[in-house]
Design a protein around this nucleic acid. Structure first.
Length: 134
DNA sequence: ACACTGACCGGAG
DNA sequence: GCTCCGGCCAGTG
């Protein structure tokens, strides 16, 4: 798994994130078969450009606690990320300290991790999805 | 090889 | 809700 392959895998998964939904770095990493590379998921995302095509919804990737990493003194990428999320209809709450959070219980997108992700080379035809609407 | 850093995760108090 | 701690993997000096 080269860096390029890793990036490609990350982008592919991130693009699968539906609108009005958010997921975590850890989950993306898990989906691509590298649950321990959670940090590298973001590492790869930072290489993305606003001109990428098809566009990668990196803004739908947040921390495991639904917290948006503040990559700035406040009005930075995080602010933009929040704006984009709200633009899609995702509710983002902000704390007094400028903490931006998203209710994963409401907007969280955590599809079942297939064996294909954990065991590359093993294929299966069964699919499971434990998503709930409400 | 060692030490520090990073868009992180999970457990315990 | 929050803080404190250990673990994980990769990049850099």
């Amino acid at each position: 798994m080269d860096s390029a392959e890793f990036h490609a895998a990350v982008y592919d998964k991130v693009r699968e994130i539906p609108a009005q939904r958010v997921t975590t770095y850890g989950h993306i990493a898990k989906l691509i078969g590298m649950p321990r590379h959670a940090r590298h998921v973001g590492q790869a995302l930072k290489f993305l450009s606003p001109q990428t095509n098809p566009p990668v919804p990196w803004h739908r990737v947040i921390g495991a606690s639904g917290t948006i990493s503040s990559r700035g003194p406040g009005t930075g990428g995080a602010q933009n990320q929040r704006g984009v999320l709200e633009a899609e209809g995702v509710e983002v709450t902000t704390g007094r300290t400028g903490e931006m959070r998203v209710d994963l219980s409401r907007w969280g997108w955590f599809p079942a991790v297939d064996a294909a992700a954990t065991q590359q080379g093993r294929d299966q035809t069964g699919e499971e999805s434990s998503e709930s609407e409400g």
